[in-house]
């Protein structure tokens, strides 16, 4: 473990806590893409199957359990508890365009041709694009509650922190994970537009609004 990865994981943890807090306090999931959240459940479940047969560390174990359970809990909040505040008519991104290509990519690029390793690859590819329905929704409505933008910023910062982590590991441990690195760079790049508006508007105290 190095500081970059620790900051990344903490940022990921924070993003989920911010999202749950937003939904609980405003009693609404307005502005949150259900499709993106459902994709995250898919990502975590397909990636963390190794919980059942590979022990890494206590930290690793609890984080995996947390990510699976919190993402399922968010789906529950959106589909059951605060269902009336979820508006599917603006959540229109076609996720089959993400799932299909990610499945094909996972069949081509993986470290071992076994069910769990191909699912791991799939989860890595899917995670890199899972935010697209959310960003698409933001683009469509042109605005977002400030707390939602903090959620997105923390989520974007998470994979961004992983990039220096990979560089550091390359130098100190001679470890390179090309699948994770390529997808991680793509994932971070998808946030650049958002980060620009976040830094120039939200952090200056203005509302998140996209130019018409």
């Amino acid at each position: 473990m190095n500081l970059f990865r620790l900051f990344g994981d903490m940022s990921h943890l924070a993003s989920i806590l911010i999202l749950v807090h937003k939904i609980q306090t405003t009693r609404s999931c307005r502005g949150i893409s259900f499709k993106t959240q459902a994709l995250y459940v898919t990502v975590f479940v397909s990636r963390y199957l190794d919980l059942f047969y590979d022990w890494v560390s206590l930290y690793n174990f609890f984080m995996k359990v947390f990510f699976i359970s919190s993402s399922c809990y968010i789906l529950y909040l959106m589909k059951m508890k605060f269902r009336p505040t979820n508006d599917p008519s603006i959540d229109t991104f076609r996720i089959e365009y993400l799932l299909g290509p990610c499945a094909i990519l996972a069949l081509i690029f993986h470290y071992k041709f076994t069910v769990t390793e191909v699912l791991w690859s799939f989860s890595i590819f899917l995670e890199s694009v899972a935010i697209l329905p959310q960003l698409f929704m933001l683009q469509r409505t042109g605005e977002a509650e400030t707390i939602t933008t903090h959620y997105l910023a923390a989520l974007g910062a998470y994979r961004a922190f992983y990039i220096p982590n990979w560089i550091y590991r390359y130098w100190t441990e001679d470890i390179v994970d090309p699948i994770a690195v390529t997808s991680g760079i793509v994932q971070t790049a998808l946030y650049l537009d958002f980060f620009y508006v976040y830094f120039t508007k939200v952090l200056q105290g203005q509302k998140f609004e996209l130019p018409a």
């Binding site: 990865r5 690793n60 990510f67 470290y111 071992k112 982590n165 994970d177 994770a180």
Partner: peptide
């Protein structure tokens, strides 16, 4: 080296 996947990463 069997696999270069970093198993300790989340």
């Amino acid at each position: 080296q069997e696999t270069n996947r970093a198993k300790d990463e989340l």
